[in-house]
């Protein structure tokens, strides 16, 4: 067995962000890989401390430690987990064939850089600036951009069930990104994409990781909620 794995997650998130905080992707990858991990919960004040910023310069979660290795950035962490040799009885999270492996990794970057960047811009308006004049003026263009990117993504599933053929870490990152749109019908408006999401989210490892994240939030709900 390798060094013990510890993951930093939020102890609570407002309802609109629950089930979307990025430690979910890391929990999911660890569950798929069959790796045990310990959760370290962090509150808002703790993430502003110099000590925390030393580990995560942008004050976010997740932070991942494995012995001497300490990582941040959910994309980098899930890639790190996926590169480990698969444990007996567990499915590899990256294809073995080098070109297929490079393509699967490219889809992690696509999820984050060709989709998430536009999806986050749209969600930022919906969550933080829905009544601001700039948000109202900007939103239709962004929604159009997101729709266009989602259509292109959906076209990938015309001939395959998952981004890299078989289920892989690329699907974990893509689903993590798509989950931010749950307050809209943008994903379900495209049947092939809705079906892809359902297929991935039906996996027991996803269900376990979502339940684990939600359980902490339920336990730490502030009195005002």
């Amino acid at each position: 067995m390798g060094a013990p794995i510890q993951l930093t997650a939020l102890q609570w998130a407002p309802p609109q962000f629950q089930g979307q905080v990025r430690d979910l992707a890391v929990r999911w990858a660890l569950e798929e890989a069959g790796l045990r991990y310990e959760i370290k919960l962090s509150g808002d004040a703790a993430r502003k401390t110099a000590e925390y910023r030393e580990r995560q310069p942008f004050g976010q979660v997740p932070v991942y430690t494995e012995g001497d290795i300490e990582l941040f950035e959910s994309g980098a962490i899930v890639l790190h987990i996926a590169e480990k040799p698969a444990l007996p009885g567990h499915h590899a999270l990256l294809p073995a064939d080098p070109p297929a492996r490079a393509r699967a990794k490219a889809w992690i970057f696509s999820a984050l850089n060709s989709l998430d960047v536009h999806i986050t811009a749209l969600c930022d308006i919906d969550h933080w600036a829905p009544t601001e004049p700039w948000g109202i003026a900007r939103r239709p263009q962004l929604e159009q951009m997101v729709r266009s990117r989602l259509e292109i993504l959906a076209a990938q599933f015309a001939h395959r069930e998952y981004l890299a053929g078989e289920f892989s870490v690329a699907d974990i990152m893509m689903i993590m990104v798509l989950r931010a749109l749950r307050h809209t019908t943008l994903v379900t408006d495209i049947p092939a994409l809705g079906a892809y999401r359902d297929r991935c989210e039906a996996r027991p490892a996803f269900q376990r990781s979502l339940a684990a994240q939600m359980q902490e939030y339920a336990r730490h709900t502030p009195p005002s909620h």
Binding site: E73, A76, L112, N113
Partner: peptide, 9 residues
């Protein structure tokens, strides 16, 4: 690789 993702994301 963490810093590569930090740059891009």
């Amino acid at each position: 690789i963490t810093w590569m993702f930090a740059a891009l994301n």
